[in-house]
Amino acid sequence: MAQASWVGIRLIIGYRALAEGADPAFLGLLASSFALPALLLALTAGRTADKFGGTAVAFTGLLTAAAGTLTMLTLRGLPVLLIASAVIGLGHLMVMVGQQAFVAHISKGGSSDSAFGTLTAAASIGQLIGPPAVTIIASLGVAQGAQPDTSLGLVVCLCFSTLATPAYFFLRRTDARLREGRRSVAGPIKVTHVLKSPGLWRSLVVSGAVLVTVDLMYAFVPVWATEQNVSAAAVGLLLALRAAVSVLSRLGLSRLIHRFGRKAILVISMAAAVASLAALPFVGPWGAIAVMVGLGLGLGIPQPLTMAWVVSLTATANHGAVLGLRMTVNRLAQIALPLAVGSFAAPLGVLGIFWANAALLVGAIAVVGGSDAGEAGFSESSGDPL
């Protein structure tokens, strides 16, 4: 529900800004305002989750995001949009870090890959239901071809957030027990010590590369669609197919990992994404179906595995902090790498863009393949090295 609200807001705020007379430069600034809180405060949010529990941080994040949405709903003006989007971005950051920290803490001694697979599958389901629910309801009673009713769309997003909040009351006792257990085992250590964990930089690099690939796909698939004369409706269906495949790919992760090993699954899945990205510039809408299936597998599987890889390298008391660090690195990559890809590959058109992205993933595969920590941190009974 939180993810459905988030992607719904990300979609509807663009229409809101256009209705207020925004230009493309402002839309770029608006997108940056969402990402800025995560860049600055993700590590702090992770530390807070370690200290007070992931559910408390996630619940606070839901309330924060709802406050930003309500502000956007009741007040008008482009400056209000910037402030409200930053508040919503902060709330979403807290929700994500809180959820991930809770999963990391509760899956200690079990399969964290399976637990993170379930969490990310739920997020993908939210990405499936959020945009159509928001846009369809916002378009009710609106003339064909006219802009959607953004206020109605924001109300839908608030409803999603409201539906998500009761989970806190069911999970807080479990989180309190987990927090006591962490206190009895070990106290938190400095982040500089966490950064020295063997292999941690490799897991962070791979995580950033995969997340940036998802962002670049959403940003540049319209370029491919324009060149291939593919309609916007078809693009929406293709992206929905990718999200659906990602959901399905995450449901049986523990069995795949038990049979083939996490390192092998990471390499194979990212190789599928590389092949799909390399093929996309040459296919039409029907060929893109196979490409989106490949991207659904290639981008769906690595995300929960990199989360599990990160937490396997750190002590239980520092799982929230290292997940916050992971998000900080991801946001840095989301800001820097698209600019680099756009600058160096854009002159070659859609071929250069997607091939540059494929090359980025090839580099990530090399990082995984050359990593001793890739296997050591992936053992089925991995404990807490620190």
Rank of each mutant, 00 (worst) to 15 (best):
A2W: 10
Q3T: 08
Q3Y: 10
Q3D: 01
S5K: 04
V7A: 09
G8A: 12
I9T: 10
A17K: 08
E20W: 11
E20S: 15
A22M: 11
L40H: 05
L40T: 09
A42W: 04
G46I: 05
R47Q: 09
F52A: 10
G53N: 06
A56L: 11
G61S: 07
T64F: 02
A65T: 05
A66T: 14
T69I: 12
G77I: 01
P79T: 01
V87C: 05
I88F: 09
M94N: 05
V97F: 03
G109S: 09
S114R: 14
T118I: 04
L119T: 02
I125G: 03
G126R: 08
G130E: 10
T135M: 14
A138L: 12
L140Q: 14
G145V: 10
A146D: 15
S151Y: 07
G153M: 05
L154S: 05
V155A: 14
C159I: 15
F169V: 07
F169M: 13
T174V: 05
T174P: 01
R177G: 01
L178C: 03
L178W: 02
R182D: 13
S184R: 15
K190E: 15
K196G: 11
L204Y: 09
V205P: 02
L211I: 14
M217Y: 10
W224N: 06
W224Q: 06
N229V: 00
V230G: 03
S231V: 04
A233F: 02
L237D: 09
L248H: 01
S254C: 01
S254W: 08
L256N: 01
I257N: 13
F260Y: 15
F260V: 13
R262L: 10
V267M: 13
V274I: 15
A279K: 01
P281A: 10
F282A: 14
A288Q: 02
G294T: 02
L297P: 12
V310H: 01
V311Q: 08
A317E: 14
A317W: 06
N318V: 10
N318P: 03
V322I: 10
L323C: 07
T328G: 02
R331V: 12
Q334W: 00
A336Y: 06
A345C: 12
L348A: 08
W355Y: 14
D372F: 06
E375N: 15
S379G: 08
S379I: 02
S379V: 07
D384V: 06
D384W: 07
L386T: 11
